[in-house]
Design a protein around this nucleic acid. Structure first.
Lengths: 254, 254
DNA sequence: TGTTACAATACCAAAAAAATACCATTTACC
DNA sequence: GGTAAATGGTATTTTTTTGGTATTGTAACA
């Protein structure tokens, strides 16, 4: 078990922590707290004034201990906010899978993107939508369909469904659905995608300007907010000859 | 028993609710009220002004607490109408993105998997392989091709290329390529996949037992070890009518 | 006796938290 | 249908918290 920080930083503990000046003992104590996990990545240290009180030393002494740890990159200071345990950022890992918008995605590929709305409306939910979004029977669902176009070529058809609780009026969405949800204070933090290949039916093939039966990349995405609740369900159909989907995976801790 | 909301939100209760800023205490209190059932699904919260009065804090503080709960999808706001408790939280799988083997993947879907080797050999690298695996000109490459079969139905064709440095003799691989690499102390920690749809050519279609032109899911994967070096390059072609690929994404910190 | 490392005091500046005042939309009632 | 009350939405300001810095004192040491 790990003690409370106030205990770890008590004057008695500090004195037991070897020899040398006060601020060195304090620094060692803080290092140990990080090594043992009493202070985890991203955690905030107590305010300098509190640490000074816990350890019964002056604040300058505390600062000097922290100075060293900041210089070593173990801590990060933010004026007016606090001091935080730095995250061990391996530069490669930083590029985690990210939920990018179509527009961003196309921009990265050097293409200009635009959309044509096929439909915006509010409906009684389908069984699929009720299941996935966890809707009560009296809740309506907003549906938005559009044709995604890159460099003047139709590239994908996209159908989005959002619970009416979070988006009562789909007509307010002009460009980005995510931006509109964000504006309403709803932030998805996680998404699961199901990707498959299919031969296109006539209606979809016609919209995308490809022969019937051409290969299409079907992507179904469910987005979740922090609490774990699903808030958006999107089905997209991309032209197989013009789009590929890139995903980065990391191996989970075994 | 559940107290009245005005009681639950009283200043005394709030102070007892742990440490931190006021709006955090208030948020925790509201979360508890929902967990214990004092606030049920679809219930309306008291008006913000009332909550502010109950808790003896300003209305902005109340709003800040509610903001967080809205972002998490626990509450829903309706301008001019009120704030309401959202629907039940669907307990979603906590599964992270993972580099799973074909066998594990099939097992999870309740299918029995096996393979038939099409080819194992050591070759002079192609330009693609040299580029991707970062091979010197005098290094050979091991190639392994197999037919993936699930429940006695051919499901995918898989071509793997590994630098001869890491796998000098491909014939030692019997079931899992990853297991063999692991045995040699090589452990990939990261992979990037490129997924696209294609209409099948005759040779592949024949192997998989589908008509020529049927939709196929093409997955190209490059695996990297901790140092960032690419060690494996795999191209797979799945039957579009029988397989879908599931990926989980997380939104990076902005 | 001066130099240097250590520690304490007092004050400065940036950020977050909280309060105040006012705006916009919905609902209900007439 | 119109209008007022109720409710959430937003901008601005004030207060509090938090790290940043300059100054001073003290004791060890050359």
């Amino acid at each position: 078990m790990t003690d409370d920080l106030a205990t770890i930083l008590s004057p008695e503990r500090l004195q037991a922590g070897g020899t040398g000046p006060l601020y060195v003992k304090l620094r060692r104590t803080l290092e140990d707290a990080m090594r043992t996990g009493a202070l985890g990545h991203g955690d905030a240290l107590p305010p300098e004034r509190d640490i000074a009180e816990f350890a019964a030393v002056s604040r300058v002494t505390v600062r000097k201990a922290i100075d060293d740890l900041v210089a070593d990159g173990l801590l990060v200071r933010r004026h007016g906010s606090g001091t935080f345990v730095a995250k061990p950022v391996s530069k490669v890992e930083q590029r985690l899978s990210q939920l990018t918008s179509f527009t961003e995605d196309m921009a990265r590929r050097g293409m200009t993107a635009r959309s044509e709305w096929l439909h915006k409306g509010i409906h009684t939910p389908s069984p699929d939508e009720m299941m996935i979004l966890g809707l009560a029977t009296d809740i309506k669902v907003s549906r938005l369909s559009r044709l995604r176009i890159a460099d003047d070529q139709p590239l994908a058809i996209e159908h989005a469904s959002v619970s009416g609780e979070f988006l009562p009026d789909p007509s307010v969405v002009t460009t980005s659905l995510y931006a509109e949800l964000e504006r309403r204070g709803v932030r998805p933090v996680r998404a699961v995608q199901r990707i498959s290949a299919t031969n296109m039916k006539e209606a979809d093939a016609h919209l995308l300007g490809v022969p019937v039966g051409a290969a299409g990349l079907s992507i179904e995405r469910i987005s979740y907010v922090g609490s774990g609740r699903a808030i958006e369900f999107t089905r997209s159909l991309y032209r197989g000859d013009a789009y590929d989907f890139v995903a980065e995976l990391t191996i989970g801790a075994s």
